[in-house]
Structures are given as C-alpha cells and as structure tokens.
C-alpha cells in the first residue's frame, strides 16, 4: 500500500489525529475552554470562534457539532472530572487543560480520581481518557503559563504520559492515546505548533512506551524530551563538526519509559547527557540518570550530565527566559565535559 505523506505543522497533525479518531469512533468527544469557542453565539455556531487559544482544535466543530466539541466553563475540576466520569461509563473523552500550569485547580480529579479509580475498583473499571495540555517556555508567558511539569504526572501511578517532538509523532501518539484504555497525559509544546514535518495521511499509531532514535551516533547518547529533542539535534550537528557523533534519543513517552532504548544506546556510546526543559528535582531527567546508574553502571565511562531548566519558576523578561531554557550551547558544553 502506498502511503501518501504531506508536510503538516505539529498543530495540524494534532488536529488531524483528533478528526480521524472522531470520525472513526462516535464515543470520542472533545471538551475544554474554547475548544470550539463562542458557544451559543448564532453566527459562529457552526464554525466556532477560536478552536483553542492557539487554534489546535479549529474547525472540528464544523464537522462534529457542538454535541461533540464542547466548550466548557472555566471550571477545570468540573470538566476534567466529567471526563473521568464519562470515560468510566463508556465515552473516550479528550479534555484540554489549556496550560499544564493549571493542573493546580484540578489535580484531585486527575490523580485521585482518574488515575486511581481502576486500581481502587480492583480492575473493574477502565478510564480511557486523554488530557491534552500545553507546555513549555519561550512565549514570554511567564510563571503560570510556561512550565513543563510532566515530571509530576510521570510520577503518578495510573497515568501514562507522552510528549511528542515532531508532527509525525504528535499525530501517531495522539491516535494511540485516544485508543488507549488508560488515562493518558498528552503534552504539546507550544513552541512546536508551527514546526512542520512529513506526516502520512490516514491513521497510524506511534506506540506509547517506545522511544525513537532521532539521530544515530557512537560517542555520546543525548536523551531529550519534547522541544529539547530539537535543541539536542542542533547540539549534535555542532558536535559533529568537532568530530563527536552524538546519538539523540527522543523519549516520546515519559510513562511508561523505554528503559531498553536508553540502555542500549548507552551500551553503544558509554556516555550520557539528558536534556529536559522541566525543573530538575525529582524529574524525568533525574530518573533517567538513576536508571543509567542502576542498570547501566557498567556501560558508563563518564558521569551522567543533566542539562535542565533551573529550579525556578519560568521568568518573564526575554533575557531571563533565555537563561532558563536549555540551549544547544549548554548541551555542547555538557558533552565536551564527558567526551
């Protein structure tokens, strides 16, 4: 079978994944603040106003109607919890938590209800829901709209967590997440929405729990997450000019974690740098380092280096925000320390 691919943006790839799954399965619904926009306003009843604050869900309401693309009040606890209840009783809701930083107002529904119900019920229930949420600094959105915070969710039993870095992975992982019978946190980096790449038409699945080697190399392994994959690739390009070949492993899934992919790359390169835009304490980056020390100790020829955000909130001023976000220069410097 010939698979046709086109160039789509990360935003379009996510939109297409939602559209295809909603066509395929009538139990898939979308809910969130302004996911259509302008509910009850007559002249935009069919087309919606916003399609989400950055237009990711734009035009879905035209095809699927207001019954399946639900604008919600700004009541995250209520609608995230409603997604839990709908999932337990037979729908496959995709709820949008506009910015991940808003988890503070609805965390009980995510982690005490959605994540734990199946376990507490002795396996009798399943909770096939997806929470799409925006992460990342670089927009000048400051302290309450710029965090990554996926480490918090990867920490919690009962939740799966994925963070795609490319349009191809975004579409395939979102389709996988919607079809998954467990609650999945789907982290979209706001600085990637306009990034483009080859995306096949039709549906395909990127399996949850599988990392992807985005660049092969023999001298050092750089494990990266979400937007940091591109920072790592840029660093790898510069290092190549110095004769250092870095292998870039895109984690894609944070829970479950593809431990084998990390360890087999480490076995090959014997050196490890982890690049993560999240805060460093108790983070996925720290978890990868612990994995390397525990199960990959014999492979290691040098200390594991972490290149992460500092242990601070995301600042506002451009000079401060630039300092906050890991850069290719910092990744190159970390590699040089151990190669």
């Amino acid at each position: 079978m010939v698979v046709t691919t086109r160039v789509l943006s990360y935003r379009q790839a996510i939109n297409e994944a939602l559209r295809l799954e909603m066509r395929r399965d009538p139990t898939v619904i979308l809910m969130g603040e302004d996911v259509a926009g302008g509910a009850t306003i007559k002249h935009i009843e069919q087309e919606g106003a916003w399609g989400g604050p950055l237009g990711v869900t734009k035009s879905l309401v035209s095809e699927f109607g207001r019954q399946r693309v639900l604008d919600t009040p700004i009541s995250e606890a209520a609608f995230i919890g409603a997604a839990v209840g709908a999932a337990v009783t037979g729908l496959r809701p995709v709820a949008e938590l506009m910015f991940v930083d808003f988890f503070g107002v609805c965390m009980d529904q995510i982690f005490n209800q959605g994540a734990k119900l199946r376990y507490m019920f002795g396996g009798k229930a399943k909770v096939p829901m997806v929470i799409r949420t925006m992460i990342g600094a670089g927009f000048g959105a400051a302290g309450q709209h710029s965090g990554c915070h996926y480490s918090v969710f990867a920490h919690m039993p009962g939740l799966k967590a994925v963070a795609p870095a490319t349009p191809y992975d975004a579409k395939g992982l979102l389709i996988a997440a919607i079809r998954d019978d467990d609650p999945v946190m789907f982290f979209e980096h706001k600085m990637l929405y306009d990034m483009t790449g080859e995306v096949p038409e039709g549906d395909y699945v990127v399996p949850i729990g599988k990392a992807d080697v985005k660049r092969e190399g023999s001298d050092v392994t750089i494990v990266a997450i979400s937007r940091m994959v591109h920072i790592a690739l840029e660093a790898a390009k510069r290092l190549s000019g110095e004769g250092i070949e870095a292998e870039v492993v895109d984690l894609r899934s944070l829970s479950p974690l593809d431990e084998d992919a990390v360890l087999s790359s480490l076995a090959k390169t014997r050196r490890l740098v982890v690049v993560d835009e999240d805060n460093p304490r108790c983070s996925v980056a720290a978890d990868i380092a612990a994995l390397a020390v525990d199960k990959g100790f014999d492979y290691l020829d040098a200390p594991v280096k972490l290149v992460t955000a500092p242990h601070t909130p995301v600042p506002f001023s451009p000079s401060l925000e630039r300092y906050y976000i890991p850069t290719p220069e910092r990744v190159v410097a970390a590699v040089r320390e151990i190669v």
Binding site: F79, A83, G85, A86, L91, D108
Partner: peptide
C-alpha cells in the same frame, strides 16, 4: 470528589 464524575456519567448518557 464525586460531583464532577457524576456529571461525566450524565454527559455519557446525553452524548
């Protein structure tokens, strides 16, 4: 903890 979940069950029925 329960009220949002009840809304979800109701939403299922309505949908």
């Amino acid at each position: 903890g329960g009220p949002p979940i009840a809304c979800g069950a109701g939403l299922m029925a309505k949908t």
